[in-house]
C-alpha cells in the first residue's frame, strides 16, 4: 500500500501534479461555495467553456494564456448580464447560448490559428503537463483569491444571502458582484489545468454541495468542501496515474462518489440516516 502511494512521487511531474492538485482541491470548493449558495452553479460551467477563445488568441499572440482566458471568461459574464438586462430572455437561456457560442468560437480559433495547444488536454486535464511554474502560478492566484475572501467575508455573506438587503444598507453590490466573478473566473482558470475545461465545474460545485449536506454555515461549508476537494483531487490523480485516465474524469467521478456518500449517510440529512432515525422509535415501541 505504502509503495503504491509513494511510487508515483518519485517522478517530478507527479510531484508537481499532486502539489497542484492539492492547491486546486482547496481553492475550487471554497470559491465554488459561492456558486452553490447563489444557485449559479451552471455559471461556472459557462465561464469555464468561455475561456477557450482566450486561450487560442493568447497562444497565437504568444502572451500568457492566463490573461487571454481571464479576459474571455469575464467577457462571457458581461454578455450574459447584457442579454438578460436588455431583453426578456431569462438567464438560463442566455447562459446556454453564451456558453455554446464562446466554446464554438474557441474551437474555431484553435483550428484557424493553427494552435499548438492540445484540445484534449485543455478539455479533460492532463497531469503530465503540470510544470513547477504552474504550481507556483496556482499557488499565488489561489492565495490572492483566498485572502480576498477572508477580507470581504462578511460583505460577501450578506450579499450572497440577501442581495436586496445588502444593497439597501448601501453595500456596493455591483462591485461585490464584479469581485466575485473575478475570483470565480481566476479559480476556474487555475482549476482547469488539472481537471480540464469541461470538468472543472465538478471540482468547484461537487465538494461544496457535499459539504452543504453536512454542515449549517457558509464558512464550515468552505472548510469541509476544501477537505473533500483535496481528497478527491488526490484520489483522482492516483487513479489517473495507475489506470492511465485523463485526470479530469478521474477526479470528477471521485467527487461524485463522495457526494453520493454524503447524500446517503449525512448525519443530519442523509437518505439512509433519515430512514434509520425514523425506524428507531418504532422499534422501541414494539
Amino acid at each position: 500500500m505504502m509503495n503504491w502511494l509513494l511510487e508515483p512521487l518519485t517522478y517530478e511531474f507527479m510531484q508537481n501534479a499532486l502539489a497542484a492538485g492539492i492547491l486546486v482541491g482547496i481553492l475550487c470548493p471554497i470559491v465554488g461555495t459561492y456558486l452553490v449558495v447563489q444557485r449559479m452553479a451552471l455559471l461556472g460551467d459557462v465561464i469555464a467553456h468561455a475561456v477557450l477563445p482566450g486561450l487560442a488568441i493568447a497562444n497565437f499572440l504568444g502572451i500568457e494564456l492566463l490573461i487571454g482566458a481571464f479576459a474571455f471568461g469575464m467577457l462571457s459574464t458581461f454578455v450574459i448580464t447584457w442579454i438578460r438586462t436588455q431583453s426578456r430572455v431569462k438567464v438560463d437561456a442566455a447562459m446556454a447560448l453564451t456558453f455554446a457560442s464562446f466554446f464554438a468560437l474557441g474551437v474555431t480559433l484553435l483550428k484557424l490559428l493553427h494552435s499548438r495547444l492540445d484540445l484534449e488536454e485543455l478539455l479533460f486535464g492532463d497531469i503530465l503537463s503540470v510544470t513547477i511554474a504552474d504550481v507556483w502560478r496556482i499557488g499565488l492566484i489561489g492565495l490572492a483569491v483566498l485572502v480576498a475572501i477572508k477580507l470581504f467575508y462578511k460583505e460577501l455573506l450578506f450579499y450572497t444571502f440577501d442581495r436586496t438587503g445588502a444593497e439597501a444598507v448601501g453595500l456596493p453590490v455591483h462591485k461585490i458582484h464584479l469581485g466575485l466573478m473575478t475570483g470565480i473566473t481566476l479559480t476556474l482558470i487555475v482549476g482547469m489545468k488539472i481537471v480540464g475545461v469541461i470538468l472543472v465545474v465538478s471540482l468547484m460545485v461537487g465538494p461544496a454541495i457535499t459539504a452543504y449536506l453536512l454542515v449549517k454555515e457558509l464558512h464550515q461549508m468552505m472548510i469541509v468542501g476544501a477537505g473533500v476537494g483535496t481528497l478527491a483531487s488526490l484520489v483522482g490523480m492516483y487513479l489517473s496515474y495507475y489506470l492511465d485516465l485523463p485526470s479530469g474524469p478521474a477526479i470528477a467521478l471521485t467527487v461524485f462518489a463522495f457526494f453520493l456518500l454524503a447524500l446517503l449517510f449525512s448525519p443530519s440529512q442523509g437518505i439512509v440516516t433519515r430512514r434509520w432515525w425514523r425506524s428507531v422509535p418504532s422499534r422501541s415501541h414494539r
Binding site: 449558495v37 444557485r39 462578511k154 460583505e155 455573506l157 450578506f158 450572497t160 444571502f161 440577501d162 436586496t164 438587503g165 445588502a166 444598507v169 448601501g170 453595500l171 452543504y212 454542515v215 449549517k216 454555515e217 457558509l218 464550515q220 461549508m221
Partner: peptide
Amino acid sequence: QIDWDYPVTAWNVVMMARTA
C-alpha cells in the same frame, strides 16, 4: 425574497445588520 436553505445561522443573519 429569502433563500431559507442558505447555510447561515440566526445569529449571523442578525449580525449582518452591523456590516455597514
